[in-house]
Design a protein around this nucleic acid. Structure first.
Lengths: 344, 344
DNA sequence: GTGAAAGCGCTAACAT
DNA sequence: ATGTTAGCGCTTTCAC
């Protein structure tokens, strides 16, 4: 049988309370008693039952992370960072994939599904949007990630989409490019608050500031942001015969697909076209040529999100703070695809 | 307050047992009673407390997955597949990263740490090896992944390393390559049971079968299998001036790094050097040129591993079956880097 | 077909 | 500084 606290108490010749005190580092325990308990624990191979502890304390020590899918590099790296950040708070992370399924995203935010064993939830939506804001009810500790929903009733950690996209385009302008294409716009072309729309807005703002007219032919809609779609959009653009000397891809995956299509077509990067992506995934450093990108501050996002969640978990109901919006710092990472050296 | 079963029972005008019966789809409940209970649940927004259920039943409905780190593509894709496979069994997945830290791997296999809230563990070691076999004590449901430890006392799901590596080299031989380099051998060059050693053995076997002598100069040690190290090994090999016309990289990440180094040096792939990797990560389809690889059957590994774990979880102590070793089917995926078309 | 009650292993009053 | 005890919310005999 698996030993319980009672067994430990019996072996150590103390009460169960003392065992609990030792385990939870309660201060007032005589060193000799502590030693006896510790050796009993060792001897029996005792491990606290976390379900019992969870039942009693109302805490499981686990938080949930819901992302579209881990095979997308960005989310794998985000999950990696979040798991590391959670470790510092001694929290485990239960990872749920919503797989681009709206109903699953709804199930997740409404607290259904497997994630109920958790103390709180980090959620990165891919289908829910601004109109679904009302679904986010702060009935449990919850931190929103990403840039599809703004102004909701929960904490939110995101990036400076508009200004960092603007900076990316300014980077291309800075190396003399004037005909800058964009791939990854949202197919419906509405101006909403989605990453695609915000980054497109940054693109337009940069061109406008440089007094360069926006050419709609250079703006290509792509969804979803998969590599093959990036390649396809690039092939279309090339086939259309519209001249361009710069490319802003709304994420790195698209950019890598585009790089491939440019390579196939015999275009040289950055000589013929300078390319910049967005996200700064690990892979950007190792493509041929290496890919310039926008580092949106993923580690910072992860740490901030976990910290906010922990605060919400520890918050008492009668002292609840208003929802917080945090935007991480970004930076432009210049690599070969915009004519810079091999350094990362 | 969060409603409990008692509240539901009160509202529905039944006993707590009946509520439990309804929730657990117990057959003998009168339809009218069931309806009353269901609407009470709806009305109160009742959700079962999983900690209580876990305490009572001894099951949490969560399994642990311990991998080195998710930012490595292979593990992100493995985690993705495993989470999907676990879903089918209605299990959540708590993901732990061991970060290439031996002590953390030991903590994980001995059942310490955060993973105690789980019903069982899937473990993919990166540091523990054959000599640590004794640490794997089947005191809880456990399935080993990967190819660093064989003959242990637990179930094990792995791939056909030797024969699939042999097939990869045969693929290169089949397109007429005779001077085939290998990158990713283990630096200590001992013949152990590690992926590097097993795949190296497959390489040698293929050459031997083709009556081609093994040239030690063509075998490059690399550790760890990171992209930059693959690039570096390739640069070294090129700098050494040893002629070669084929390359077998022991995983895709190395191969992609090598591809980059070949590109830098102005070598054409596959014309000058045909390249094949191992793992068939998503990225292999989209590199320039696309990368031929060995698909080790990752989805199959994930599904088999979860199934074995579920069986172990459901197994009674007095009917325990001997440990099982399962090897997934592999296949060679020929792409541009070995002269084949753009199809995946 | 439904109810009453015990108890899973732990924590936290409260008592000593 | 340590012991006693009452639950946390659920499942599960065992009655009826």
């Amino acid at each position: 049988m698996i030993p319980t606290m009672h067994d430990v108490a019996r072996v150590a010749g103390v009460s169960i309370k003392t065992v609990s005190n030792v385990i939870n580092d309660f201060p007032h325990v005589r060193p000799s008693t502590r030693m006896r308990v510790l050796s009993a624990i060792e001897q029996l191979g005792y491990r606290p039952n976390l379900s019992a502890r969870g039942l009693r304390s109302g805490r499981t020590g686990v938080i949930g992370l819901a992302v579209p899918e881990l095979r997308q590099n960005y989310f794998a790296e985000l999950a990696d960072s979040i798991i590391r950040a959670a470790e510092k708070h001694d929290l485990g992370v239960l990872v749920e994939q919503t797989s681009g399924d709206r109903d699953r995203e709804i199930a997740v935010v409404t607290g259904a599904g497997r994630l109920r064993l958790t103390d709180g939830l980090l959620f990165s939506p891919e289908r829910l949007g601004q109109d679904d804001r009302h679904l986010l009810r702060p009935t449990f500790p919850f931190v929103l990630l990403g840039e599809r929903i703004f102004g909701g009733p929960t904490d939110h950690v995101t990036m400076h989409n508009v200004s960092s996209a603007k900076a990316a385009v300014e980077h291309l302008l800075g190396i003399g490019r004037r005909r800058i294409a964009l791939i990854g716009a949202h197919p419906d072309q509405r101006e909403e608050v989605r990453p695609a729309d915000l980054r497109l807005r940054g693109y337009k703002a940069a061109l406008e500031a440089a007094a360069i007219p926006v050419d709609p032919q250079l703006i290509r809609a792509v969804a979803p942001w998969h590599r093959e779609n990036g390649a396809e959009a690039m092939r279309d653009l090339i086939a259309a015969g519209i001249p361009f000397d710069g490319l802003f891809a709304l994420n790195d995956t698209l950019a890598l697909g585009a790089l491939r299509a440019l390579g196939e077509a015999g275009w040289r990067v950055p000589d013929d076209v300078a390319v910049i992506g967005f996200d700064d995934i690990d892979e950007a450093r190792f493509s041929v040529p290496s890919l310039s990108s926008v580092d949106p501050g993923r580690d910072e996002i992860a740490e901030t999100a976990v910290e906010l969640l922990v605060e919400r978990i520890n918050e008492r109901d009668d002292e609840r703070l208003p929802p917080l919006l945090v935007k991480s710092e970004f930076r432009i990472v210049a690599r070969e695809s915009t004519g810079f050296g091999r350094s990362s």
